[in-house]
């Protein structure tokens, strides 16, 4: 048997994601300038030795904002995914146990959530509760919960039909015990892959909401807001839109490749195909 090669998408995705995570961590200890420091006299500078990526229309250092923006973006994404998993995975597992009515309820609730695109739900929620990172996390988290519930339920149902589960039941184990000992470990792979993909979606949605002014609030920098601000300068300072746009693209691409790679690695059905 040949030694298994890691999927190319996994390697590339992991490298890109590590880059973004590294930038976020770096911003905790060092940025070239304070990211919120306004110096109108130094506005719209081109990249140079002082400001490596130039400055925005208020003279804030673009590199510092991108670094702190990475931290903000990843934090919101991680929180939205964590909230989604915390709500959705138990629901999905429970649906597989309950069968019939419970199952139907969870499935239809998930359908209902899917009927509203995540961004629309988030816009609605921020209109009612007010703009801000916490409400974005809440809105995206609820949407993610539905996705997690559906995916977990499907995978758990398949596990429940396997012989070792039936054996465990025959040995007198209760449904809770079987779920925790046998079902959860077997659906973990699917959940992790899903989490990576949803992470990418959450980062993108957070950027979209911040672009609309509903997400992370100034003075805290966010990539989406940077894009929104730079939009009116597209003709005069296009780089100020390209840098945050590039950051979003790299992050989303990295997370998606990572998710694809993990699926190839963890899911036997995809193992032979799908290697980039």
């Amino acid at each position: 048997m040949r030694a298994r090669r890691l999927p190319a998408s996994l390697v590339l995705g992991a490298v890109l994601t590590a880059l973004v995570v590294g930038a976020a961590l770096l911003s905790l200890v060092w940025t070239p300038f304070p990211a919120e420091q306004i110096r109108v006299v130094a506005r719209l500078r081109l990249p140079g030795p002082e400001h490596w990526l130039g400055t925005d229309h208020f003279g804030r250092d673009a590199l510092s904002m991108i670094l702190v923006g990475a931290r903000n973006s990843l934090s919101v994404g991680a929180a939205a995914v964590a909230l989604g998993a915390a709500l959705g995975v138990p629901l999905g597992l429970a649906a597989a146990v309950w069968g019939r009515w419970g199952d139907e309820t969870v499935a239809r609730l998930a359908d209902l959530t899917f009927a509203f695109p995540a961004v629309l739900t988030a816009i609605l929620l921020t209109a009612v509760l007010g703009a801000g990172a916490a409400n974005v996390v809440l809105a995206l988290g609820l949407f993610n919960a539905a996705v997690f519930a559906r995916v977990t339920r499907g995978a758990a149902l398949a596990v429940w039909r396997r012989e070792f589960v039936r054996a465990a039941l025959a040995l007198g184990r209760g449904p809770l015990s079987v779920t925790l000992v046998h079902v959860l470990p077997n659906v973990a792979g699917v959940v992790i892959v899903q989490a990576t993909v949803l992470f990418a979606v959450a980062v993108l949605n957070e950027a979209a909401l911040s672009y609309l002014g509903l997400g992370i609030q100034p003075p805290s920098p966010s990539w989406g807001k940077m894009l929104g601000d730079a939009q009116t300068f597209l003709f005069t300072a296009p780089l100020q839109a390209i840098f945050p746009g590039g950051a979003i693209a790299v992050t989303v691409l990295g997370l998606n490749l990572l998710g694809d790679g993990l699926r190839d690695l963890l899911d036997p059905r995809h193992r032979s195909s799908g290697v980039l």
Binding site: V40, H57, P219
Partner: peptide
Amino acid sequence: IYARRSGELIAAMLAEVGIRAKVEP
């Protein structure tokens, strides 16, 4: 746009003297 930009700058100026203004578009 004049309101959004002014607001962001004024929030930063007020922060300098200790007034923490949360910007709400």
